[in-house]
Structures are given as C-alpha cells and as structure tokens.
Nucleic acid binder design. Structure first.
Lengths: 211, 211
DNA sequence: CGACTGTGTGATTCCCGTTTAGTGTCGGGT
DNA sequence: ACCCGACACTAAACGGGAATCACACAGTCG
C-alpha cells in the first residue's frame, strides 16, 4: 500500500525520508502508550498527539489501529519465540526444556501484561477475526517450539495419561491461566509468584510424566 | 409502550407497577443479546430497541451498562455457587469434591462463555474498578467453597508441594486457563474437551496430592 | 385543585475509529 | 522550465458508542 515496490526504473522515489521515520515514531509512541495504558487507553488520537501529527496521518502508515498494536506485539512475541528456539537447542533433557520454556512464557506475560492480553486474551469482540494473521502465527510457532519436547516425551512412552497433543495443550493452558488471572486480577492476594509458578510446573509435570 | 393493567388503589405509591416490569424486561432482553453477541455486541441502544424503549430509559433502572450485564452475571455465577455448595456438602472424600467442583466450573465456563469472560477475563480496561462488587464477591465465595476441601487435604499432610493456598490457586488457574483459551481461540484444533479436562484434573491432582 | 414524584423521551455532549476531500511539496519526464 | 502525479499530511465530517440534560407526561397525595 504505502511502499512503492513496483517502480522498475531507476531512482524510483525512495520511500525514505519522512515516511519511514514517521512510521517508527508512531510505533514508538504507540508502544509507550499501549504499555502504560493498555488497549483501550491507546487511542488513535492520543498516539497521533504524542507524535505531533493529526490522527488521520496514522492511516498513511497503518491500515487501522489494530495493525499498529499487533505490529508492536509482533516484536514482543518475536523475542519470546527467539528465547524458545534457543531453549529448544540446548543439550538438556526434554522435561527441562519444557520447564524452561513455560517459565520464560510466564515471565514474559507478567512483564508484558498488555501485550499478553492483546494476543492471548483478546476476545474476537475486541480484535475481530483475521487481523491477527502475523501475530497469531508467531504465537503458533511458539507453541510448536514448545510442544516439540512434549512429543519427544510422549514418543518415549513416558506420558502417564493422554496424548502428547493434549498434554502440550494442558500445560500451556495451565500456565496461561495462572498469568492471565494474575494480570486481570492483580488485587487478589496471590501466593508468591515463584511459588505459584513452581507448583504449577512441578505439579503438572509430576502428574503427567513418569520418571 | 403503555402497560396499563395494574390499578391497586391501596398502599401508598411504591416503586412497583411499570417500574418492576420494565426492569425485568430490560434484563431479559439484555441477557438474550449479551449471550448471543457478547459484551461489545450488547449495546445500550440495542437493548433499548429490543425492549421497545428509548436508550435513556435504561438509566432509570440501572446506573450504567456494566451494572446491567453484571446483574445478569450475578444470576449465572449464583447458580455455579449453588452447585459448589451442593458438592461441598456431599459425603465424599475431599479430592473427589475438588474434582467435581472444578469440572462443574469448566462446564459452566464453556456453557456461558460471554458471562465467563465478563467476570473472569475482564481486564480493568473494559470493566473498570469496583463495579464488580457483587459479582466479584460471588466469584470469591465460589473460590472459597472450592478451596475448603483443598485446605482439608493440606491439613492432613497429603500435599506434595506448596501451601494449601497456592495449591488452590494453581488448580483454579489451570482450569481457568483451559476454558479461557478454548473460549477465546475456538478455531484452534483442540484435543477433545473431555480429554483436556481430565488430563488437567488428573494430572494436577496426581502431581499435587499424595494418595 | 395544585404539587410532587416516578417513568419516559429527544436532543446533546463527548469520545471513539475511520473516511472524505482537499492542500502543499517535491521528483522526475518531456 | 514546465507540469504531473505521487506522497505526507490535514481539517472536517460520519456513524456509532456511553452517558447526561431539560423537559413532558402520567398518576397519587394533601
């Protein structure tokens, strides 16, 4: 849409200058506001004001509001994916890899609550359908990276119950539930974070995997 | 519009008559729309249209939109609480009670996805602060009803790891995570519901409680 | 008969995301 | 040198959300 890739001739008007700078400025401002005030607080007009342009200008660089915030989320989820890939390559046993990945996952969620909510708690009410394309894909790849070791464990017959797939989904869901609740109900008196995380991981792995 | 059927010439003027009927009508219409279209879809205007009244009229009977939907949710959560109380009184061992309660909890969530999201996934973005008063309290009492048996188990020293409180929170969170993900990402290819629920419950209870 | 009160309305306010139409500027192509 | 079109941008407006205001009706009480 915005970038002219199709000028076959030389020296086509380069998409440099203001255009690219603006895009970065917008993303930076949007990220700042989104982190501080969440999805509803990150208004098009507020972002535009922060950049110092009119709200209409944002539509020069992004299709709509969701695209801006999802692009920010892509960055963040990309980092999580990188961590997962790194862990996946370490020469340690599968159970340890699972544990490290899920720990990283939960810490990511607690460190980036708004991003986490946008990507993993977004009802289709707020994010509507297929806009998530890229972000959802990154999320999928995170899950796959993490379900790899689980299937290893399943293949070696060490799963006490259920299929490898269901075990992977359950482990993911349990960790999701913990951080999601802690994020959306921060005023509850939770047991210490570390304890909750360890009880979840140890409990489930102990219950699902035979030694 | 005009409901002229009651005319008791007795008893000083009280807020009965039209008032009470309207209130019920509004709640019924709101519930229908909310269940069908979720929080964002249940608009003040839409509800008012369904009742056949101007949008302003809703503010005669309810403080704001959230109060309407939370009142609906109260009903639903109240039913869940009743089930929990019933289970709590059955003459069966604590672990079975825990299991039955969590199963009922998950089935409730999957049967009432919009209500569940409103109460248990509502970021303060959308529901803002202390409006939840009554509903949150019902949720608390559900949790307490359910954490009772857990503390019984903890008191008898059968907890493999963590405190009774953290075990209760972790069990709750795990079940929450499962249903929350299934609700917000219905298009994923999940393992069969029953299997996921059983793997979650059996896995965690096996891992946390010694026989 | 007023006056008062509960119930309801239409117009209005203030946000929101998004669209439309128009302005200025700049880089070539001729 | 000239004009043309692409680009970055803007002001104004649209439609829709929640919520409020000023006002119009019943009835009922004194």
């Amino acid at each position: 849409m915005t970038v002219a890739l199709k000028k076959p001739h030389k020296s086509a008007r380069k998409p440099k200058g203001d255009g690219h700078l603006r895009r970065g400025e917008i993303l930076a401002a949007a990220e700042r506001i989104f982190i501080a005030e969440g999805y509803a607080g990150a208004t098009i007009r507020k972002i535009a004001d922060a950049v110092g342009v009119s709200s209409t200008a944002l539509y020069m660089h992004f299709r709509d509001k969701d695209q801006i915030l999802l692009e920010i989320s892509d960055d963040a989820i990309g980092q999580l994916l990188a961590v997962n890939v790194d862990i996946a390559h370490r020469p340690i046993d599968a159970v340890s890899r699972v544990k490290l990945m899920l720990e990283a996952y939960m810490r990511f969620a607690l460190d980036n609550p708004n991003t986490y909510q946008l990507v993993f708690c977004g009802s289709r009410d707020v994010i509507s359908k297929e806009k998530q394309a890229a972000t959802a894909d990154l999320g999928d790849r995170c899950f796959e990276e993490f379900s790899g070791p689980i299937h290893e464990i399943a293949a070696s017959g060490r799963l006490r119950t259920g299929s490898g797939e269901s075990a992977a989904q359950v482990l993911w869901a349990a960790c999701h539930g913990l951080v999601a609740l802690m994020i959306t109900m921060p005023d509850r008196d939770w047991a210490p974070r570390e304890e909750l995380m360890q009880v979840t991981l140890d409990g489930l792995l102990h219950g699902l995997v035979t030694d």
